[in-house]
Design a binder for these strands. Structure first.
Lengths: 344, 344
DNA sequence: ATAACCGGGGACAACGTTGTCTCGCAGGTG
DNA sequence: CACCTGCGAGACAACGTTGTCCCCGGTTAT
C-alpha cells in the first residue's frame, strides 16, 4: 500500500528485461551469455532494455544451474593477511586467479586451529572451487572426505600430516643450514639461536637446519644460547638483550623476520652490531640501509603462491596424481652482518 | 554404464539426507537451520544421516531463496594487497566482518581504472552485500545506479568525485603540514619535497600540506628541490642522489613510504644522514633501528579499515544519511631524523 | 462424543538462472 | 506441392534451498 520513495527496490531480473524487450527469458539469457544464434535486432533490443533497467546477471543463480557448478571462486586461508609473507602469497595467488576470472575469498587464521576448521567449512558451504591453506591445525583427515566430494586442496608453508594433498613449502631446513654454514665460514663458533615456538613446524625445521650446520662443523648447540617461543619483535628484543648482557655469542641465527627485527634492535642498543654477526631467516625491509646491512636467507613467497595456485588449478581440472611436496628454494642475500671479520 | 571408481561424484544434497533419514526434505532444512520445533529423535536421525554422507549445506542455493538475498560476502578492492597499507586495511576489515559471519572477496587494482570497473561489476554480479573501494578511477557516477539497486559502497584512502558515498581518508594535507612544520621548528629553511605522482589524489594532498606549512612560515617551495612522480624506492633513491650531489637541502619531506626508503638509502650512501633532516609520511619498519631513527607521520590503516567496514555495515543495514567524509588522524612519531640540530 | 485447537512434518512453489526439448517458419528438394 | 531440413526462439524443468500452506494426529474443551 505504502509507496515509499527510496524503497531498496529489488534488482531487475532476466524476467524484467525479457518483458521490456518483448522477448522470452531464454533469449535474454542467450544475449547475456553471448550466444551467437540470436538475431541482431533482438540482441539490440535486449541490450538496451538491460541497460535501461541497470540489469546485472546474478552469478550465484547461474552457477547453481550451470553444469559442473563451478563458482569461479577459491578460498585462501592465511596465517595473517597483515603479515608480509602472507600478503605476498595472496598477491601471487590473486594474479594467477584473476587471469582465469576466478576471485579469491581470504581470511586469517592466527594460528587458531578451531578457526581454521570453521572457515574451511564456511568456504566449502559457499562451494569454492578449491582451497589453499596455510595450516594452523595438526589433523587433516577431514580433508579426505572433502576430496572425495570433489574439493581440491593445496597446503602452503607447512606440511599437513598425513600428506593428503599437495604442499608447497620453503626449504626451511636446508635454507637454515646454509645460512648457519655461512655464519660459520667467518670462523665464529659460538652461535646463538633465536626462534619462534617449536610447535610451529617451520620453526622446528629451521632449528633442525641450525643443528645440522653445527653438527657438520663438529659443534653442538649450547642450550644457554638457544631461545625458542619468541612470537614478537619485542619478545625477541628482550631475549636478546638478556643474552647480550652476559657473555655475548660470536654470531646469531634468527629463524623468523620479527625475531630478526627484535634482535637487531637489541644489537644496536648495545652497539654490538659490528661485533656480533647475524643472519636471519626471511628478508626484512630496510635490511640494506642498516650499518651493517642484514644478511638474510630470503624466502620467495611469490613463488610459493604461484606454485600453490597453479597446482590447485591443475587439481581442479582433474589432475589425479598422488599428492606431492614442492620445495621452493631460499636465497642468501649477503649484506654485511653475516660476514663480519673476527677481530685480531 | 561405466562404473568409474573415483568418479568425482556429486555432493550429497538435502534430498539425499532426507532419503537416508526417512524424513521430508524440509525437515532436513529445519534441522540444518536449527529450528527448534523438530522432534529430538528426528533431529538425531537427520544429524547422523548428514554426517554419514558428509553433507554440507549449499549456501549459494540457500541465499538465492532466503529473503533479502544476502550473500554474507563483501568485496574489497585495494590498490595492491601486497603493500602494507592495503593489507593492514584488509586485516581490519576482515576482523570486523568475521565477527558477523561475513567473508571478504578481495582484489588488487594497481591504479588501473579499467580493472576497477571490471572487478566492481564482477563483485556485483556475485551479489556481494557491499563494496569497499580504494579508488583508482576518477568517475564514480556509475555508483549511483548501483546504490539505487541496493548496493552499499564505502571508499577508502581517496575521495570519489563527486562524493556519492561515504569515504574514509587519512588527514593527508593536515598530516603533511604538521610534519613539515615539525621540520621547520629546527630552523631549517631549505626543505626539499620528494613525492609520488601528482595524479594520485593523496600525493597531491600531501604536497598541498607541504606548501601550506612553508607558506605559514613565509616560505615558498623551491622548484629545484621538488620531485614528483616517484613510484618506487629505486626511483626515489636516484632522484635523491641527484639532488644531494649538488647543493643539498637542509631538510627533506617525503610523501610516501617507498619514497622515504629510497631517500634514506641515498642519505646513508652519501653519509649525510646526520646532516640533512628528514620526515616521511607513512611509517616504515625498522625506522627506529636506523641511526638516526626516522621520524615519520604515521597513518593508521587499521583505523581506516575499521571505520570503513563499520560504515559499510551501517549502510547495508539501511542507514540512509547523506554521504560523509571521515578523516582519520595521523600521528607524528619522533625518532631523531626530523629533529637534527643545525651545526654552528 | 464431537468440535476446536495445536504442533509437528511434508508437499509445493519460488529464488534467478541455464539445459533440453519442441515448435514454427523459411527455404530447399524430389 | 508435399516433405524434409535447419535454425531461431520460447516453454518447461531443473539446480539446492527456503517460505508458505495444509494436513494429520493427538489433546483439550464443550
Amino acid at each position: 500500500m505504502l509507496s515509499e520513495s527510496a524503497q531498496p527496490k529489488d534488482r531487475p531480473t532476466m524476467r524484467d528485461v525479457a518483458a521490456l524487450a518483448g522477448v522470452g527469458i531464454k533469449t535474454v539469457s542467450r544475449v547475456v551469455n553471448g550466444v551467437s544464434t540470436v538475431a541482431p535486432e533482438l540482441v539490440e533490443r535486449v541490450r538496451s532494455a538491460a541497460d535501461k533497467l541497470g540489469y546485472r546477471p546474478n552469478l550465484t543463480a547461474a552457477n547453481l544451474r550451470r553444469s559442473g557448478g563451478r563458482t569461479n571462486t577459491i578460498g585462501l586461508l592465511l596465517e595473517d593477511i597483515g603479515n608480509p609473507f602472507s600478503s605476498a602469497v595472496f598477491r601471487a595467488v590473486e594474479d594467477y586467479a584473476r587471469d582465469r576470472s576466478v576471485l579469491v575469498l581470504a581470511a586469517s587464521l592466527d594460528e587458531n586451529p578451531q578457526r581454521e576448521r570453521e572457515l574451511t567449512r564456511k568456504l566449502i558451504d559457499r562451494r569454492v572451487d578449491g582451497l589453499i591453506i596455510m595450516p594452523a591445525a595438526q589433523d587433516y583427515r577431514y580433508v579426505l572426505s572433502e576430496q572425495q566430494a570433489g574439493m581440491s586442496f593445496v597446503f602452503v608453508d607447512r606440511l599437513p600430516t598425513p600428506l593428503l594433498a599437495d604442499a608447497i613449502v620453503s626449504d626451511n631446513r636446508g635454507g637454515a643450514r646454509t645460512a648457519v654454514e655461512h655464519l660459520l665460514r667467518t670462523r665464529r663458533r659460538r652461535v646463538a639461536y633465536f626462534g619462534d615456538d617449536m610447535a610451529i613446524p617451520t620453526a622446528a625445521e629451521r632449528f633442525a637446519g641450525f643443528t645440522d650446520a653445527l653438527a657438520a662443523a663438529g659443534l653442538v648447540p649450547d642450550d644457554r644460547m638457544v631461545r625458542h617461543g619468541l612470537r614478537t619483535a619485542e619478545q625477541a628484543r628482550r631475549a636478546a638483550n638478556d643474552l647480550l648482557a652476559g657473555d655475548p655469542p660470536e654470531a646469531i641465527f634468527t629463524s623468523q623476520n620479527l625475531v630478526t627485527v627484535g634482535v637487531v634492535e637489541a644489537l644496536h642498543e648495545r652497539d654490538l652490531q659490528h661485533d656480533v654477526a647475524i643472519v636471519g631467516f626471511d628478508d626484512i625491509p630496510f635490511a640494506a640501509v642498516l650499518q651493517p646491512g642484514i644478511t638474510v636467507m630470503a624466502q620467495d613467497p611469490a613463488a610459493v603462491g604461484r606454485k600453490a595456485v597453479s597446482r590447485l588449478f591443475d587439481r581442479m581440472n582433474g589432475d589425479q596424481s598422488p599428492p606431492a611436496v614442492h620445495t621452493v628454494l631460499t636465497r642468501l642475500i649477503v649484506r654485511g652482518s653475516g660476514e663480519l671479520r673476527l677481530p685480531e
